[in-house]
């Protein structure tokens, strides 16, 4: 899932400015399950914004709506009415949701209520950890299902480095230090008797499949709908 965190209320209020009609748009997918931008969070944020505005003597009408997914046109089309009436649309979806709203409604002022953090999973109640960096060329088959790109601070392909100590990474300290990904990879492959996988030197990674190649796009010709012939 995409993991996000709500921005500080002060920053959100600055982004909303003195708008009189504010629409808070939640998303029912990733940010719902990481408790950052679902229907409940939209309700709470709406209440806080209304009360904060009232405390300042400048009441604002803040309403909330949550769509199943902010990153698909179909769901966004269903909220056209409230979006067009709002002075400011406060999206509490991930960065994709904010951009999708802004693209679908070019006249709407869309601002983000969340900081999108990473792709990850809940490690335990109330704690999420990063697991994928979307590098575009998955190595997990060589590393025992543990990603050295997302989980090694230095993204090493032939680790560990000298900063690995007692199974912990030198980046961070104490309890907050992450596990050394390469220590985990070694332990996993050793337990499975597959250490030969890391005996080979992995050459430098071609980062063009990642962000270094610019904004990425996936095209599936078999899924594309035929373009109708438009004759005037």
């Amino acid at each position: 899932m995409i993991v996000a965190e709500q921005k500080a209320l002060d920053e959100i209020r600055q982004l909303v400015g003195d708008a009189k009609q504010v629409l808070v748009v939640g998303c029912g997918t990733c940010v719902t399950v990481c408790f950052a931008g679902g229907a409940k969070e939209a309700g709470v944020l709406g209440s806080l914004l209304r009360m904060a505005a009232q405390m300042d003597g400048q009441p604002a009408a803040v309403t909330e709506v949550t769509v199943q997914r902010q990153c698909e046109w179909e769901y966004l089309d269903a909220i056209r009415g409230p979006v067009e009436k709002a002075d400011v649309v406060l999206s509490i979806g991930c960065g994709i949701g904010v951009q999708a709203l802004a693209e679908r409604y070019p006249d709407a002022v869309v601002v983000p209520g969340l900081n999108t953090k990473f792709m990850g999973m809940p490690a335990e109640h109330g704690e999420w950890v990063e697991r994928c960096a979307a590098c575009g060329n998955c190595l997990l088959g060589l590393t025992g299902g543990i990603c050295p790109i997302a989980r090694c601070s230095k993204q090493l392909l032939n680790g560990p480095c000298g900063g690995s100590s007692q199974g912990k990474c030198e980046v961070g300290c104490g309890d907050s230090a992450p596990d050394c990904a390469w220590q985990l990879i070694y332990q996993k492959l050793a337990a499975q008797d597959r250490l030969h996988l890391i005996m080979e030197i992995t050459p430098a990674k071609d980062w063009r499949s990642s962000r270094d190649g610019g904004p990425r796009k996936v095209v599936r010709a078999d899924l594309k709908l035929p373009q109708p012939d438009i004759k005037e």
Binding site: L23, R50, Q54, G57, P59, A61, P82
Partner: peptide, 13 residues
């Protein structure tokens, strides 16, 4: 509560 001093805005967009 200071929220009770000004009249609550009950409008909806």
């Amino acid at each position: 509560s200071p929220l009770r001093r000004p009249k609550a805005n009950e409008g909806t967009p």
